[in-house]
């Protein structure tokens, strides 16, 4: 990962938060580009291993939303 930038790995539920992120776009909101979204079918799909793995890969923060 590029050392100069912050990277947030976010796991977004397809049915709510992913749709909300879509809506943020439709509403032309602006937010920092440090976030990378991984779409998951439900936050119930989340496993602690994903979070640990993201940190191991250099993520500065992990955001699970659903």
């Amino acid at each position: 990962m590029n050392d100069n930038t912050i990277k947030i790995v976010s796991f977004l539920c397809n049915w709510c938060s992913y749709g909300a992120a879509d809506l943020a776009g439709v509403s032309r909101m602006e937010y920092p580009a440090d976030i990378r979204v991984i779409r998951i079918p439900c936050s119930g799909r989340m496993s602690p291993k994903f979070i640990l793995s993201a940190f191991r890969e250099g993520a500065d923060a992990v955001w699970v939303s659903g």
């Binding site: 998951i40 079918p41 993201a54």
Partner: peptide
């Protein structure tokens, strides 16, 4: 939804289309 996949302690359940290796691959790609 994958709730059973995440809760399975034996790693016996796979979620087709969102399987564990696929999500890991996205994290690794990052």
């Amino acid at each position: 939804c994958g709730l059973c996949v995440a809760s399975c302690r034996s790693g016996a359940i796979h979620l087709r289309g969102f399987d564990t290796n696929q999500i890991f691959s996205q994290i690794f790609a990052l």
